[in-house]
């Protein structure tokens, strides 16, 4: 960690976690396929960096693949490959025809096809991350596409964002408030953001993070592990019950 950071991520950044044993989510349906987690949020909030961090943290333990609705260049693919994050064969880009919200919410066919193509090409997977194209605060994923969704906002977008609400902030299974290292530079009050997020989200969890300080996005990675284990458990349970 760089010494010149005014904020010490671990001690002074407020965050909420799913309480052990207290799960605010309804159980996931029985899955014969990979768990799909949507990652949405406004342009520039750090969705792609979060995807890269999760791949870095989880690629060694989970069979995973990524569908991106963002504008994805060969440079992006090369970067991920060089960083040892993910092989390009595990990434599919989906064109959204300038309608990023439509592709993840109203007409999810291209994304479903991309997920299925990855599963066909790579064999069984544990986790598929679906990254939305950069949109605004109203974009959410269809339940027909993903099992759980993460909404990413950043402190540089202003500390009023959680108060503004919108379906992403209010209903996402996990809210990530990103780039906390920038808070002192942009005059964002993290305590205010935490208070507003709690007010908007009730028991749904919120994580404050800085990928600059924590390149593996450890807390979000833990949340994802929990979701995947939970789905696998539900799956095993359902199968056991069938016998």
């Amino acid at each position: 960690m760089r010494a010149d950071h005014a904020y010490d991520h671990d001690e002074s950044v407020p965050h909420t976690h799913p309480e052990p044993g207290v799960d605010p989510h309804p159980p996931l349906p029985q899955l014969d396929r990979a768990v799909r987690i949507g990652i949405g949020g406004p342009v520039g909030s750090g969705k792609t960096a979060l995807v890269a961090a999760l791949c870095r943290a989880l690629a060694g333990e989970l069979r995973l693949a990524v569908v991106t609705n963002d504008i994805y260049t060969t440079e992006d693919a090369d970067f991920l490959k060089r960083a040892g994050v993910l092989d390009p064969s595990r990434i599919r880009a989906v064109e959204t025809g300038c309608c990023p919200h439509t592709a993840i919410r109203d007409d999810i066919s291209a994304n479903l096809d991309a997920v299925e193509e990855l599963e066909d090409a790579l064999g069984p997977l544990d986790l598929v991350l679906v990254e939305s194209g950069g949109d605004n605060l109203t974009a959410t994923f269809s339940k027909g596409l993903v099992d759980q969704q993460i909404f990413v906002v950043d402190v540089a977008g202003g500390d009023k964002v959680p108060r503004k609400g919108g379906p992403g902030v209010t209903t996402a299974d996990l809210l990530v408030i990103n780039k906390t290292d920038l808070a002192p530079l942009v005059g964002a009050d993290l305590a205010v953001m935490d208070r507003d997020a709690r007010a908007r989200r009730g028991t749904l969890p919120t994580i404050f993070q800085s990928i600059a300080q924590d390149p593996q996005a450890s807390q979000v990675a833990d949340w994802v592990r929990h979701v995947v284990a939970h789905a696998a458990g539900a799956h095993a349970h359902a199968h056991a019950g069938a016998h």
Binding site: E95, T96, G97, T102, A103, D106, D107, I108, S109, A110
Partner: peptide
């Protein structure tokens, strides 16, 4: 056009 058959992503 809102029938969800992927048309929005194609410009022909």
């Amino acid at each position: 056009g809102r029938f969800p058959s992927g048309g929005h992503a194609h410009s022909s």
